[in-house]
Structure formats: C-alpha cells, structure tokens
Nucleic acid binder design. Structure first.
Lengths: 229, 229
DNA sequence: ACAAAAGTGTTTTACATACACCCATGG
DNA sequence: CCATGGGTGTATGTAAAACACTTTTGT
C-alpha cells in the first residue's frame, strides 16, 4: 500500500568567471537524448555515497575540467515538471573561478563546455535560465557584504581591476575615490611591488587579498560591507 | 554497468512561533522505528508528484495540524550519513506562524507535536539541531531587511509588541524611540482604534501591517531595513 | 497620589555622497 | 609635450545613536 518514491537527485552549478570587464558563465552542450545540442548548466546526478558538495565538484571536473575557487549552495529546484522526462530535484550551486581557469583545456572532457558572456547566454534546457537568474542575483547581493569577489580576480591585482570588477558585477558606475577609501578602510588588502601594465599611464600598486586577516577581523565582529551599489 | 541512484528526498520544516517575549519551535516526537521517542523537526518524504513546497505544507498539516503564515526554503542538507538508515537528502524550510496557531488542537494528528521555547529544545534526531541553528540565524538576519516579523504577531498589534518581538528575535535591547521612528518612517503600518490591555498604563494605539502598501513601495525600489540590532 | 506603560524631540556622531586636480609613466 | 591611467582630500547631507521627561490610564 506504500507508493515508492521515484525522484532523482541532481546538482547543477552556475560557474562565473570574469575577464576584461565582462562576466561569463560556463555552459555545456548536451550530447545525448531528448535535449541533444541544447546548452545547459553543468551538473548531473548525485551518487548514493557522495555528498552534494562533492557531487558538484566531481561533475564540474568531469564535464568541464574546471576546479572552482568558491562554491556555495544556491537553491533547490523541485517543481514536478522541471524535467519532462522524470522527476528530478536539483540542488543548484554557484561558483566563482579566477582567470587562470578561463581557458578550457580540451584534454579533459571539455570539448562541449564554453564560457558565455552573461548577456549572450543562449536558450537553456530545463529551468536553467531561472537558476542562472537566481545565481546572478545572489552574486550581486553577496559581493556587497562578503569579500567573495576576489575569487574572480588573479591572486594579485591592481585597484582598478577591483573597481572594474565591481562595476561589472553591479552594472553601475562607482566613484573611484570613495570605493578605494572604503575598501582600504577594511584593511584586508596587502601591498606588494609595482607594475606597468598598459604602455602609458602611471604604474599602479599591486595588491593581494589578505584572507587570513579578513577571517580574523570577521571573528571579531567586523563586517565587510559596501553601500554604494 | 550503471549504478542506480538510491537516494530519498525529504523536506523538513523549522516552524517558529512567538508568544510573550519567547520564541518557540514546533517539534514532533517520533513514534516508530529506530528513533522512536526522539524529538525531531516535522517533515517527511516528498511524493513523486508533489512539489517541494507542497510537500512541506502537507507534512506540516499531517504531523502537526499547523498551517503556516510564511514559508521559505532554507538550505538543503545532503551529507551521506545524516540519516544512518539510508541516504536522505532533505530540503529544509523555515516557517512563521501567528499566535492563533499556537494551541495545537489535538483533533488532527497533533498529539505528539509540541512547541518548545528555543532555549529549551531537547536533543534532536539526525542533524536537526544544525538545521534549527541555521534557521534561527536566517530568521535573525532576515527580519532586519524584510518585514517578515509581522507573521509572528496577531493581525493587529501594539507598538510595544513589535518592539518586544524584535528584542526577542535579536536577543538585544533596542531603543524604543529610535525603533518607533524608524518603523513609522517606512509608512507601512496602519492605525486603528485604541486598547487598554494591562490594567494600568496609558492605552496604546493599535496598528496593523499594510502589506499591499509595502508591496507597492517595494516595487518602487524601497527597502525595509533595520540597522540597530 | 502613585504606579505602569505609552508617547515624544533634540543633539551628537559617523558615514555615505559628491566632486576635480595632480602624478608618473610611455610614446 | 601629450596622452593615458593612477592616486588623492574636502565639504555636505543624511541617518544612526544616545538620551529623559511628559501623558494617560488603573488602582
């Protein structure tokens, strides 16, 4: 008299990268089945003996060859008809990678994985457009109160990189002086040497994010927070 | 050559209620099986043809007879060993109910459901303690930037009710004048008549939350936000 | 009259906002 | 010497924080 539950558990990941003032998402093209050739978020079924986090990491590696710098659970999508073939509940994650991951080395299984600028994402399978939307919203609000943006930059960077990153993420201009003042006031950046990137122009200081220091401050009740969006 | 996935999908709910300056959680006592007599969050397996939200609502009704005023997905717990019997991924929700739901009418299936003051919660089955912790944290931060606290009060209330609610939730004293000024400045409360609750003391104005007005303001880019925690 | 809770305004302080010029380098 | 991007300080406005007395009722 007991109806057996018949639901599959999957994970999907929205992986963001940033390059040259553009935000990118990682998509894969499906090879088989009903949704062949459609683009979709990387993801797949969770193994019975594998935690959700591990499943995401594994799927990302298998499907795209990418190892992420930051990973966070986003939301669980469980509408009955979200996958027309069978009932699938998907735990969605979002992830950030730094620019060193940007070129997808085709050696793995990455032939069908590609970075898409966020404004040029094609039609997506299932409810993945919705997942992507939610992930972007989360990213936009989260960078305002957690210093996760650094995961989208190289380990060392110049102030204008950080500034442009925030402008790109938030899709707004920000005041250079105020932004710098604010970030520096947190005292979570560390200086290094100098640099002369572009031919002309005054060389810029190179910084890196001092994560241990941030963690320490955080424990003492300090809050990272950027008001001007 | 394909290993079939063997994972069950469940939902669990952390239902909060508020009464007389105390925050309560709804727990059930398990009747059968290995965890008999242990207290746990209400919840259960999702049906194959039922969305996650519907599953929570159904389980709450079946197990406790309670209908919630506010429901929001919290987090999905998917560690391999969180249920020692078999692999279960649980989508946790948190919910708010107003005081009219506080007395659990035994007529339904509610004999084994009980409200516990949050500081007096007994040992809980599985990882439910962790779920509860996360839910409480979420509630504490969310009341600061969304007017969900009203779901814990009667439809009409007095200003000191709201003030005490926030003090209870945030576990801090708040300045009465500043709090009032702030809340009133949002212009989302509506007046009504008067009241003489306790024998002595000046009667207080009765307010109600003007939800449509809040929704309208929200659409125009207004943000509810309480700074002084 | 007094006890109890409701109601109210001002001053101080901190931080967000707005804004424009000089500096160091490459060509 | 000019073009390019990097670096910097100050004044104004707004909102948070701190703080105590008066009002209205019941007993």
């Amino acid at each position: 008299m007991k109806e057996e539950q018949n639901i599959k558990v999957a994970v999907d990941a929205v992986v963001f990268a940033y390059k040259e003032e553009r935000l990118y998402v990682l998509l894969i093209q499906r090879k088989y089945g009903q949704f062949k050739n459609e683009w979709a978020l990387p993801g797949g079924f969770v193994k019975t003996n594998e935690s959700l986090d591990k499943a995401v990491v594994r799927e990302l590696k298998e499907e795209t060859g990418v190892k992420v710098n930051y990973l966070e659970q986003l939301f669980t999508f469980g509408e009955v008809k979200r996958d027309p073939r069978q009932r699938v509940v998907s735990i969605a994650y979002y992830a950030l990678v730094n620019p060193s991951k940007f070129k997808l080395n085709a050696q793995t299984d990455a032939k069908d994985a590609q970075w898409f600028p966020i404004e040029e994402v094609p039609k997506l399978a299932f409810d993945h457009k919705l997942i992507l939307k939610k992930a972007k919203e989360r990213l936009q609000t989260k960078v305002l109160y957690q210093p996760i943006g650094f995961n989208l930059l190289k380990p060392t960077f110049v102030f204008s990189d950080l500034e442009k990153l925030y402008q790109t993420l938030l899709e707004e201009k920000i005041d250079r002086r105020n932004f710098r003042k604010k970030i520096l006031s947190f005292d979570i950046l560390e200086e290094t040497g100098q640099q002369k990137k572009i031919g002309s122009g005054r060389p810029a200081m190179i910084y890196k994010f001092n994560k241990p220091k941030y963690r320490a401050l955080e424990k003492r009740g300090f809050y990272f927070e950027i008001k001007y969006a």
